[in-house]
Amino acid sequence: MSGKYYKEFIKGVFKENPTFVLLLGLCPTLGVTSSAINGVAMGLATLIVLIVSNVLVSMIRRFIPDKIRIPAYVMLIATLVTVVDMVMHAYVYEIYKVLGLFIPLIVVNCIILGRAEAFAAKNGVVASFFDGLGIGTGFTISLTVLGMVREILGAGKLFGINFMEILVGADKWQPALIMILPPGAFITLGFLMAGINYIKEKKHKEVK
């Protein structure tokens, strides 16, 4: 991996993390992260679609007139997601069972259109691939972290394992239900962003 492509990849994970920095695609972020496994699943499904859509958009970017690029991308992405949904349903049902719920949600995820517009329409195919990979990975990590925090606090579990009960005993542990309801998503996201910004600022000062 040459330095340029590595940069495209790594910026999506940290500097331009879609959830914590760009605040893109918040709808699925807040909606599905009630458990860690949901976060992983949604993240991975988005990652795959993002890579393919980035590559396709980059490939046809010279043929699409500027003024109609948005409807063209939307059509492309919607077709892509629908085909992915059908193919997975038909041939890899085990994976579809976990991801199936999230795939239609990807169509409305603005990360996909956002990256098509902001990156793939202006860059080459390989660079777009790494941009999709990076942003998708960043999205997956963010969703997983969100899901983990919410699952621990809201259900006392992690990846479905009832570890809080084992740790402190069932009678002493009362999960905070709000954490797996929508408000819990906002609270968790807010605290995580505050934490990340605090670390960033501290680093910034140190550099100075």
Binding site: F63, P65, A72, T79, V87, H89, A90, Y91
Partner: peptide, 25 residues
């Protein structure tokens, strides 16, 4: 013309995918 072309290709791909996956689904 470009938009119609994209729409037609998309529809074609969707129809093909639907036909192929209908039975296994």
């Amino acid at each position: 013309f470009v938009l119609t072309l994209i729409a037609v290709i998309s529809a074609g791909i969707l129809a093909y995918a639907d036909k192929k996956t209908a039975e296994p689904i």
